[in-house]
């Protein structure tokens, strides 16, 4: 049995005021094996966050079955750690207390709690900042605290929704290394949402490309490259090109619908083909 099993899942939002409904996606099937690192890639609005939130239990699927570790998902739980795009740290708590905040629900002894929090802060190289407050940290540091907080719960599954989306290139590269290291150390099952093709190839075992209107899974790419991966590797570039081509088609569809007929698809092809920025800012 897969660690995370998503079967025939549909999500429809109903607007309570005017009874309009909007189906984000349907017939989504996805299995994530234990210890596997899977990235969700797709144009904005295709429902990546929605799918992740359903697995997190923050949102309910309209139809279909979702389970984690064989148990149907009905609500959020500490077996599934979540890292959001914003670090979502409690501003009134120190870095250490933020990590302990999550542990409070785990019925640990005070020493154990302290030990775990310190261990995971060390893992993300923040031992020196344990007594700092979130407003004293940089964006990258905050995100590392959020990762430590999620990991400290020792979840079976780690769900990450564009965790590095708001960070600069250097910080992001550093955190990629950290996430790889953490994944190798802990072998968590990771479901990782991103806009960045290169990021997904760097990190994951498998890349799930989602499309929009209707939201669906377009294609799944296995990443059979040895770690640590190098973006300059020809096989890396080849895969990047292949995914980019597919993604461009989906983005084109969104643009055409949102902007209308006078939208020039050549222009977007140029925009999204740039090697410097592989679909980074879609």
């Amino acid at each position: 049995m897969a660690e995370v099993a998503i079967e025939n899942v549909e999500k429809t939002f109903v607007n309570e005021d005017n009874e309009n409904s909007f189906t984000v996606f349907k017939d989504i099937d996805l299995n994530v094996e234990a210890g596997e690192f899977v990235s969700l890639l797709g144009p904005s609005g295709c429902g990546k966050s929605t799918l992740l939130n359903i697995v997190a239990g923050l949102e309910q699927a309209t139809a279909g079955k979702v389970s984690a570790g064989g148990e149907p998902i009905t609500e959020p739980g500490p077996d599934r750690g979540v890292v959001f795009q914003e670090a979502a740290l409690m501003p009134w708590l120190s870095v250490l207390d933020n990590v302990r905040f999550g542990l409070k629900k785990q019925k640990l002894s005070a020493e154990e709690e302290m030990e775990r929090a310190e261990y995971f802060l060390k893992l993300v190289h923040l031992s020196k900042f344990m007594q700092s407050f979130p407003h004293e940290l940089s964006g990258g540091m905050k995100q590392r605290v959020a990762i430590a907080r999620a990991l400290a719960l020792d979840p079976d599954v780690l769900l990450m929704d564009e965790p590095f989306g708001a960070l600069d290139e250097q910080t992001r590269t550093m955190l990629h290394q950290e996430v790889q290291y953490i994944w190798e150390e802990t072998r968590k099952t990771i479901l990782f949402v991103t806009h960045n093709i290169r990021e997904s190839i760097l990190l994951s075992d498998r890349i799930v490309l989602m499309g929009t209107r209707p939201g669906r899974i377009v294609e799944t790419f296995d990443v059979d490259l040895e770690r640590p991966r190098k973006p300059s590797d020809p096989a890396f570039i080849e895969l990047e090109e292949a995914i980019n081509k597919k993604l461009a088609v989906e983005i084109d569809k969104v643009m055409r619908e949102e902007i209308g007929d006078d939208y020039n698809s050549k222009k977007s092809a140029l925009l999204y083909h740039s090697h410097r920025d592989m679909g980074d800012n879609i």
Binding site: P76, A88, F101, A146, L153
Partner: peptide, 10 residues
């Protein structure tokens, strides 16, 4: 987002 984060921690 703070509420959601707390919910994911139980």
């Amino acid at each position: 987002i703070l509420i959601r984060a707390a919910q994911t921690m139980g």
